[in-house]
């Protein structure tokens, strides 16, 4: 299944102020892998999942979009997301990455590397409430 394409939200613009789960404020470009992991540990509802990029291809609907196929979590569930080519994902141990980092840097001024097959991105799921 392909999810609804997200637009390019304002919080990815360089300098945007992000609040971590413990209340600490950081700029979007300064976020580290640990910030997401620690915030998820504090959260009662959300947990971090590893989403490995399995495939990246151009969208059939528009050249501005790409379809990124992920393998999510321990069950390796296949999830496809249609996003703007400049939409940034956070790669474990690496930072912000997009299908077209030049455009991301141009539009958002957010330092960004090229998203590639095999990259492991941070994603969220609901905590299993037993």
């Amino acid at each position: 299944s392909t999810m609804v394409p997200p637009s390019l939200p304002p919080y990815f613009i360089k300098g945007s102020i992000i609040q971590l789960a413990d209340g600490e404020l950081k700029r979007v470009e300064d976020l580290k892998t640990e910030d997401f992991i620690q915030s998820a540990e504090i959260s009662s509802e959300l947990k971090i999942d590893s989403s490995t990029v399995e495939r990246i291809e151009g969208s059939h609907t528009s050249p501005n979009f790409a379809v990124v196929q992920f393998s999510v979590g321990e069950h390796r569930t296949q999830v496809s997301v249609e996003v703007l080519v400049e939409y940034p994902f956070f790669v474990f141990g690496q930072g912000w990455s997009s299908c077209c980092p030049d455009r991301t840097t141009q539009l958002l001024e957010l330092p960004c590397t090229k998203l590639s097959v095999g990259d492991v991105c941070i994603s969220l799921t609901l905590k299993n409430l037993r």
């Binding site: 997200p6 939200p9 304002p10 919080y11 990815f12 945007s16 102020i17 992000i18 609040q19 971590l20 789960a21 404020l25 979007v28 976020l31 910030d35 997401f36 915030s39 959260s43 959300l46 971090i48 999942d49 989403s51 992920f70 999510v72 979590g73 069950h75 569930t77 999830v79 997301v81 994902f89 956070f90 991105c121 941070i122 994603s123 969220l124 799921t125 609901l126």
Partner: peptide, 19 residues
């Protein structure tokens, strides 16, 4: 200045699981 919560930056990839 707007402040955004950390989780808004992370895509919510919620696979439907039967188990």
């Amino acid at each position: 200045v707007p402040v955004f919560p950390w989780h808004s930056l992370v895509p919510f990839l919620a696979p439907t699981q039967s188990d």
